[in-house]
Nucleic acid binder design. Structure first.
Length: 561
DNA sequence: GCCGTTTTCGGCCCGACTGTTTTCAGTCG
């Protein structure tokens, strides 16, 4: 509601600092790990940073009455269709307001009409070129989907960087922006580079074979659209500014604003070229320097969301979050025994390439027929095969597991006598997304043989909301029963997500990372899950598969005992 | 609308680019 109000107020020409205050409050509230209703009941609304008298009053009104009068008043003046037009590139609040007031434009159709009939070009401050740009913006607005999944952007950016490296000499090149922060979806892709021939780097970039449109191309920056329909921005800086540019282009915006404010209080200025004391540049080559000058340790990109990471770091406490290198194995993999594409041996060899010490085969259980679930008999035979492959490839330990279905009555899809023989049991909902999901998951967790709940909310980022589940209750029970919650790292799931991870951690839950890979070329997605864990402030100790095999087996047995 | 180890008033991150302007406003990231 506050975000919507911010948009409306901005459009109405309200003071931008006020607009920003609403955005700030919204951002903080979304990132709360405690239920805001609880905070409200304790009378602590004003203790939330960014929530002052006015906003606290509005929250109070809403929680008491279910209504917020200021919200309703604000949005009634600005229809959704109008506010939406602010998403059009080249059309900001000022112009849109003018167009609305002078020409009565209320939606996209109106806008198109005034572009075509020439009335837009006649407005003060408008000209031929501006109208052309807005017109292009409309085209882009219509053609492009929303944000793209991190798991789609990731290989795309690696490919692009590789192609550029082959064509021009570079000192340094790296993804920046929300991609580097490992946000689950990204709007566009940012790449930062340095090299001695800046102009040539930009030029080669705009001529890459997958580029279909060049939106802008200057001396040091360029934007293109590649054939997947994604916008990629490249910026090229001098070596001495690489650190400050990387810090700046990585964001997030609220994080950077806070940093710059801190610099200001120390009489310094931070911009993308460096840290400045008066005219003198005193740092810029590395990110570490930038943070040092404002009195902070380097902060991992995944945490730079202004969710308390700066305050935490103030005592020069560094945040020891989990790292990809800490992950010793993948705990959720499918083989061709069910709906996967490869044999257990092939998977083991691939996992060995990743440097893993163990992995868990967790094929589907018998009632999940559409995914080729294993009958009891097949599962017994699979356990035998795993034993054989383990003898053949001694460098990596294959654990016998199962992604056992939680049936509609909350019972499990195999009897305990076979579950007992498995190294680990992952339980999951696959049907009945609206049928007492909470109760069923809790019943499953109360079985001492169930180690992990897979994809606890069932959401698919691009297409599905998830089960009707009371997650706080599941989290509480997970902690109580010592059941691990999975961070399913498959690119369209990333479930639990970062905010729920952080909540669960605060309540004492531990986690398990698995890719849910069905093919060998999906094992890399562990990176995405690690990204979620890092964004959720998880440490190595919070995650099951950072432990050496012996410790992992011990942890799995605790619950059984 | 928020905030305060200078402040309860007067600030609020910073720069590039573009286009329409004769010195700057709007937009973007």
């Amino acid at each position: 509601m506050f975000l919507r109000m911010a948009d409306s107020l901005e459009l109405q020409g309200e003071n931008l600092f006020k607009v920003n205050a609403y955005r700030q409050a919204a951002q903080v509230i979304v990132s709360l790990t405690e239920d805001i209703e609880h905070i409200w009941k304790m009378g602590n609304l004003r203790k939330i940073p960014g929530v002052g008298e006015g906003i606290a009053k509005k929250i109070d009104e809403f929680l008491k009455t279910g209504k917020m009068s200021k919200y309703e008043e604000t949005i009634s003046n600005t229809p959704e269709t109008l506010v939406n037009l602010m998403k059009i590139r080249g059309l900001g609040p000022k112009s849109l307001n003018l167009i609305n007031k002078e020409l009565g434009v209320k939606d996209l159709d109106d806008l198109k009409r005034v572009i075509t009939d020439g009335r837009l070009a006649n407005l003060p401050g408008m000209g031929e070129q501006k109208v052309k740009n807005i017109s292009k913006g409309v085209e882009w607005f219509l053609s492009t989907q929303d944000r793209i999944l991190l798991g789609i952007a990731y290989p795309l950016v690696e490919e692009t960087i590789q192609m550029l490296k082959e064509r021009v000499s570079l000192e340094n090149i790296t993804p920046a922006g929300s991609m580097r922060r490992m946000k689950e979806t990204v709007g566009d892709i940012d790449i930062l580079a340095s090299g001695h021939d800046q102009k040539k780097i930009v030029e080669e970039f705009t001529h890459l074979p997958n580029v279909v449109q060049v939106l802008a191309g200057g001396e040091t920056k360029s934007s293109v659209v590649v054939k997947q329909g994604v916008q990629i921005d490249l910026r090229v800086v001098k070596k001495g500014s690489f650190g400050s540019a990387l810090q700046y282009f990585t964001g997030s915006k609220p994080h950077n604003i806070k940093l710059r404010l801190m610099a200001k209080e120390k009489g310094l200025k931070i911009n993308e070229y460096g840290v400045f004391k008066g005219e003198e540049k005193i740092a810029g080559e590395t990110e570490e320097e930038i943070y040092q000058w404002v009195g902070l340790p380097w902060i991992p990109p995944e945490l730079r969301e202004d969710r308390g990471e700066i305050e935490w770091s103030l005592g020069n406490k560094s945040l020891e979050i989990v790292d990809q290198r800490d992950i010793l194995g993948d705990l959720h993999l499918h083989s061709c025994w069910s709906d996967g594409g490869f044999t257990i041996e092939e998977i083991a060899l691939k996992a060995r390439e990743f440097g893993y010490k163990y992995l868990a085969i967790c094929d589907h259980s018998q009632s999940v027929r559409y995914a080729g679930g294993l009958t009891e008999d097949e599962l017994w035979r699979q356990i035998d095969e795993i034993r054989e492959v383990n003898l053949k490839i001694p460098e990596i330990k294959i654990l016998a597991g199962s992604e056992v279905d939680i049936k509609s009555d909350g019972s499990l899809d195999y009897p305990d006598k076979i579950l007992e023989r498995l190294d680990l049991v992952v339980a999951a909902i696959h049907t009945g997304f609206k049928q007492e999901v909470t109760k069923r998951i809790i019943k499953a967790m109360e079985n001492p043989l169930v180690n992990i709940i897979a994809h606890p909310t069932g959401r698919l980022i691009s297409s599905r909301e998830g089960y009707e589940v009371n997650l706080p209750e599941v989290i509480e029970r997970a902690a109580l029963t010592q059941t691990f919650l999975e961070i399913n790292s498959y690119y369209d799931r990333l479930d639990l997500n970062e905010v729920n991870c952080r909540k669960a951690k605060e309540l004492g839950v531990k986690f398990s990372l698995g890719t849910d890979a069905h093919h060998l070329d999906q094992l890399w997605m562990m990176k995405l899950g690690v990204g979620v864990a890092r964004r959720g402030w998880l440490t190595k100790e919070d995650i099951l598969n950072t432990y050496e095999l012996d410790d992992l087996m011990r942890l799995l047995r605790i619950k059984k005992r």
